[in-house]
Design a protein around this nucleic acid. Structure first.
Lengths: 120, 120
DNA sequence: AATATACTATTAAATAATTAGTAAAACCTA
DNA sequence: TAGGTTTTACTAATTATTTAATAGTATATT
């Protein structure tokens, strides 16, 4: 999987959110100052050539939808961070975060309880 | 703090590792195919204008050293990932990771013990 | 001193990413 | 059906990033 550029990522975030969308739907959700319609259209087509997005023709128009899921990209992003900055170890990252946030043992335990509940 | 580009980051990783280095030291640690001496030199000077690096003149030469620490950049990177993909919540990221790796409760607890030990 | 060496500074060239204009096709409406 | 609207496809322009050549300066070597 290839990393997304900043502008590409912005648009993927919207597509992940909407599940499927026309160019105009994506444009609508973009922050001001909104880019030109064609800017969005171009990026979506780039995302399509990169294999992140596909479309189905609806009348004369295209409805776009993500084929790389947000979870897949999440996973890719965590892995990249872990391997670049924490020797590939999630434990190291968690320790780093805990120290940085001055979490005490109680708080760490609360987080882990939450995780355990969630994993079940 | 501004994000590093890929090439800049590569060089910062080496500088963080070496703590202080001449251009040639950085070049030495780079993977083959090694770039030109001047390519490295240029990037280090870009890093200096971005405020990531400083130098002390040693004779006619410059010895470079990081002024943004690896920990500071680590922290910045985690935060960016959390805010973009986990609603800013470390717990969410941990849950996601645990599910993805199929960690069972035992393993989660082992990680937590490690973190607790480390935080003390 | 002349020549080679090691380095920095300046600049240019190549490539990648971002933005959007223009043209053409498809559709809608009076 | 002529004129306006919406949309895609193609292309150009701009800016950011990456790479390195060239030139200049100081030091070492013979």
């Amino acid at each position: 999987m290839k990393a997304l550029t900043k502008a590409e990522e912005q648009i993927m975030q919207i597509l992940w959110d909407l599940k499927e969308a026309y160019v105009k739907d994506v444009l609508e959700r973009m922050d001001d100052p909104k880019p030109a319609y064609n800017t969005v259209s171009t990026f979506i087509r780039i995302l399509e050539t990169k294999g992140f997005v596909k479309h189905r023709p609806i009348g004369k128009s295209h409805q776009y939808y993500p084929i790389v899921t947000k979870d897949e990209y999440r996973s890719f992003s965590i892995r990249r961070l872990l391997s670049g900055y924490f020797g590939g170890s999630f434990t190291k990252m968690a320790s780093f975060f805990a120290k940085e946030e001055n979490l005490d043992v109680k708080e760490i335990e609360r987080i882990m309880e939450e995780v355990k509940k969630d994993v079940k």
